[in-house]
Design a protein around this nucleic acid. Structure first.
Lengths: 251, 251
DNA sequence: AAGTGGTCTAGACCACTCG
DNA sequence: GAGTGGTCTAGACCACTTG
């Protein structure tokens, strides 16, 4: 928080520049867990911004989980260990790259079909609407990790069958060619054991532990864009969550 | 958003009163999914508050997932179905009451012990610090649901052994007698199969599917307050999550 | 008493969307 | 061009925490 100056011509908002600088200081260890972050007044004075802007920077820092505020005391660097990608929605490809693995896929099916009722309901489809169906075995570090069956409304991604290379990243394709940004997803996980067919594809013994996931992904408007059912090897993955006690987070 | 007036003498902030009114209109169906929420300017004019206050009310609404904003277009009622207690941290007792079940517990152990290394690390304990250890079978609707083993720093809840009725709600006890509010938790879930001993306690067959959870709960300061290992019957529970794509939620 | 975050005001300019 | 949300300013009063 020294005599560094802000770029007031930049398209990057001031509060965001400040938040990024503080994040950097926390990550580098310059600001340690439990320590006081510069106060609103201090930021305001040193960086010559209004107090509301300083405040917005600190709120942004808190909402990212890097700090927390206490009335009358100050804002402190959070003591939580921040796992990377905690609670973040990532595609399989992104997740694997994050871990330093090279993701691969074996495509089992890629076609346009009439969906069953569960899929049609989850995707809010009209009566005769079709979906693009993509079923793949996902491979990480030369061993199968999961079987994944995705359904997308055909209406929202025309010519996906012709255009998309089905072993690649679906989320990237949706974003780059259709402007469809996945914003959030609801996911249900169950504990189960592998069927004979699954065991063969996943190269495990029959009745080995597996996770079964059912995921519906949405655009930020609430439009469902993808319904996925997947089966993960229980010995190769964990589900990591961060739970908060109050949804009533005020601003 | 009619001619209702705000209570300017109330200790409840104006932006919160406005947010609550809008939430109420959404819940009651007066504002329907996909519809426009009154704009910042409109709220500002009708309720005679500054635009920043109106803005704070709308942001608060968005952060609760009830609405979303689009630059240049407006703020819309979210189309997501809002499941109750989605992503919320609940104690077993609270969760069961929410579902309309009467929770019961069979206490297997309740004592003060020296923790192993994993527990000591998770709870940030000093060298010789002890924990309160509580192991219970949790029962819902007359059938076992899970085995739960909790560890709490003895330093933070002195006389818990003497005071607490171990079949009751631990979170309530922590809040009411020690002023310790659980704020968030990190949780890891694994898919596995029941051991012989677990199968007996849970009344299922050996090698039945189970979830194994490891949870560390924190106060809002980041102080760890509880470390729990639990084993849930796979046939009696699901894990429901809401994932968001960007952690970079700005304010 | 001094410092902190929480709330609030009354303006301002901008980029964006839509008709 | 009119309306929207995104950012920013320069003040203000308050409740809370700590010395």
């Amino acid at each position: 928080m020294a005599a560094v100056v802000l770029d007031r011509q930049s398209v990057v908002p001031l509060y965001f520049q400040i938040q990024q600088r503080l994040s950097e200081q926390i990550r580098s260890g310059e600001l340690k867990p439990g320590e006081l972050v510069p106060s609103e007044q201090e930021i305001s004075a040193r960086l010559r911004v209004s107090r509301m802007t300083a405040r917005q920077a600190l709120k942004s820092l808190c909402s990212r989980g890097l700090a927390y505020s206490q009335r009358g005391k100050g804002t402190f660097v959070s003591r939580m260990k921040l796992e990377k990608n905690f609670r973040q929605l990532l595609s399989f490809s992104e997740e694997m790259k994050d871990r330093g693995s090279r993701p691969r896929s074996k495509v089992l099916a890629f076609k346009r079909i009439h969906p069953d009722e569960e899929v049609a309901e989850a995707l809010h489809l009209g009566p005769a609407e079709e979906v693009i169906f993509l079923r793949r075995v996902r491979i990480a570090d030369s061993a199968p990790l999961c079987i994944e069956a995705a359904n997308l409304p055909a209406r929202l991604c025309p010519e996906l069958l012709e255009r998309f290379e089905p072993s690649g990243s679906l989320y990237r394709e949706l974003a780059e060619h259709y402007g469809l940004q996945v914003h959030m997803a609801d996911e249900v996980a169950e504990a189960s054991v592998a069927t004979g067919a699954e065991a063969k594809l996943l190269r495990v013994r029959r009745r080995s532990p597996v996770f079964r996931f059912t995921r519906t992904a949405y655009l930020h408007t609430g439009q469902p864009i993808e319904f996925v059912e997947s089966t993960y090897r229980g010995d190769r993955c964990k589900v990591v969550n961060r739970l908060t006690r109050h949804l009533e987070i005020v601003s």
